[in-house]
Design a protein around this nucleic acid. Sequence first.
RNA 1: GCAAGCCCUGGAUCGC
Length: 277
Amino acid sequence: VTCSLLLDYHSKNGRCTEARKIFDPMTQKGIKPDATTYSILLNGCAKKGDLSGVRGLLDLMVANGIPPTHHVFNIISCAYTKGGMIDEAMHIFDQMRQQGLNPDVVSYGVLIDALCKLGRVDEAMHKFSQMIKEGMTPDVIVFTSLAYGLCSVDKWEQVEEIFYEMLDQGIHPDATFFTTIMCNLCNEGRVMEAQGLIDLMVRVGVRPNVTSFNVLMDGHCLAGRMDEAVKLLDGMVSVGLKPDSFSYNTLLHGYCKAGRIDDAFILFREMLSNEVT
RNA sequence: GCAAGCCCUGGAUCGC
């Protein structure tokens, strides 16, 4: 049983239809897939946005007497939110409770993120306090989603509040958290403040990653300051980070928009001479 | 037997 589990775990990296080709004969041979196996397949469907596939698998697992786990419900909930069906996703909470499962941090995280992305930040904040009331500790991902939502509706003071709240709870902000805020600042043209956040994150012991730099570079590009943006490319290399395709695309786009085609071409050749992921 | 760990789920950036 565990052998076949490993089998389709690996094939998930390719295509989930491939995985299915292993899965179906497996069940025919009387091997009972467990909840983890279903999760893996479900996730494959969910990533493709194949909601009917998701529903089919869920029915199949219930028919086989495998009770859905937190992971299973969370995958389904996430698939709904990504498909714009947030009400369906919220309904998953009820279904979980019917199965005797309490929604966990991830369950809340999925909904909070979805609400924030829709700009329904008040509802997200409500879910947030609800989860705390239920004795759960929000993690850095939940805080990141909230920060994203608050930034995008210009509630900057509240971003600061949740930042301190997070620190109070002993939750360490990570690079993604800071980068999220930086990105929103850049979109408002507040590139200098975003740059200042890099200093803050370093002070609190968080290392900026490639995305942090990419966000800042894009900010400078949008502000028409290509030379600053290029400086950051060198800056990221000098701290040991490897520019990726986002980094180069950002700069190339910036150069082209600025009409500096020659510079774009030089950079393009530089990109080709480096190994870019 | 007990405990712990591992594996499946949620968050950020360009272009199309």
